[in-house]
């Protein structure tokens, strides 16, 4: 049963052959281009660019992802006093697939790097990263430690950095407003 009815060598060049055959068959043909359809798609893109960026910047959904101390301020950000929802930063979601913004709150150990990378890859594009607090920005007080990377920007592309240890929840509000400016130009000033 282990012996195959064909030898492997027979099929080594099969893929190349198929591709060359397909290329030869297409050689003489002219593909018709629908000029009207092309213009139309450009037009719809241009029209939709405004609403799409407006939608993107006005409903940023952060991920419920707390590493360390700053996660306490992240909870406060979503609770009664600061109330993130009035700025369009809706409920914190548990799954990365429903979120736009990852807020890295806390120090990043070597053991957490693969997990954070994986979470970032699971998020739907376009996705944004905020480095919240000293530890995620530059290592913070742990910069000498043997198990800490000095800043999340060594692993992920960071959009906004927030300084402080820990930054107040209002600072996160400011950072998300900066992110909104970055996504869609200038924003109308929120009345906080």
């Amino acid at each position: 049963m282990d012996e195959k009815p064909y030898s492997e060598e027979q099929f080594v060049h099969a893929k190349q052959e198929m591709e060359s055959l397909a290329a030869a068959s297409l050689k003489g043909r002219k593909l018709p281009v629908n000029a009207v359809f092309g213009k139309l798609s450009e037009l719809t893109k241009a029209i939709a660019a405004g609403p799409i960026t407006w939608g993107r910047k006005s409903s940023l959904w952060p991920m419920q992802f707390g590493l360390a101390c700053c996660a306490m301020e992240l909870l406060d950000f979503g609770s009664a006093r600061v109330d993130a929802e009035r700025g369009g930063y809706l409920l914190f979601r548990g799954t990365p697939r429903q979120t736009d913004v990852m807020i890295v709150a806390g120090w990043v150990t070597k053991a957490m790097i693969p997990e954070i990378k994986r979470l970032y890859e699971q998020m739907a594009e376009p996705r944004y990263v905020i480095a919240y607090g000293e530890c995620a920005t530059c290592g913070g007080p742990w910069w000498e430690s043997y198990n800490i990377i000095t800043g999340i920007d060594q692993v992920l592309p960071v959009d906004v950095y927030v300084a402080g240890c820990p930054p107040r929840p209002e600072n996160l509000f400011g950072a998300l407003m900066k992110l909104q400016e970055k996504i869609g130009g200038k924003i109308v000033e929120n009345k906080i």
Binding site: W107, T109, A111, M112, E115, E144, S145, Y146, N147, I148
Partner: peptide, 11 residues
């Protein structure tokens, strides 16, 4: 456990 270990006692 150990995802937040940073070696406080050593520092």
């Amino acid at each position: 456990i150990g995802f937040l270990h940073r070696g406080v006692e050593k520092l």
